[in-house]
């Protein structure tokens, strides 16, 4: 296992302290909740999809630094992307944090700060919680909570 500072890189700590897009979108077209029953982390992702583009995306909730920073960075990365592009980024992100490959070429560079998560298997669910909620919102336009279990 790596040291704590390899996991908690300064970008992660920054997004944990000052999460971006940490708000509700009142006229959201879709939203979904993510819940990790193991630790109680809970967040909601809001989406505004217009002309097959994610015009706006936000989140709110409580959780550990990894889940909060991951949600925050996710919102900054998927804004302006198509739902299909966002889904591909998640796949690539998921492969990286589960140790199935390094940061792929198609992964937005700033998500590479989560590469250290693969050394901490207990924290993979934290890093992917917001992404699961995003995918649920995109695929099902659902209102049911998604779980990482």
């Amino acid at each position: 296992m790596s040291s704590a500072s390899e996991l908690y890189q300064s970008i992660i700590l920054d997004h944990n302290r000052s999460p971006r897009n940490f708000r509700e979108i009142k006229d959201a077209s879709r939203s979904a909740e993510g819940y990790n029953p193991l630790c109680g982390d809970q967040l909601r992702v809001w989406l505004k999809v217009e002309d097959d583009k994610i015009a706006d995306v936000s989140f709110q909730g409580s959780g550990c630094a990894i889940s909060k920073a991951s949600a925050s960075l996710m919102t900054t990365v998927v804004k302006g992307k198509t739902p299909a592009e966002a889904a591909r980024i998640f796949e690539s992100f998921h492969r990286m944090v589960t140790g199935q490959g390094g940061p792929a070429d198609d992964l937005p560079a700033k998500l590479a700060v989560f590469a250290g998560v693969r050394e901490f298997p207990a924290r993979v669910k934290c890093a992917s919680l917001a992404w699961h909620a995003l995918r649920n919102a995109l695929e099902q336009a659902g209102t049911d909570p998604v779980s990482t279990e």
Partner: peptide, 8 residues
């Protein structure tokens, strides 16, 4: 968060 404390 307690989880982060536990990991460190």
């Amino acid at each position: 968060h307690p989880h982060d404390v536990g990991t460190v």
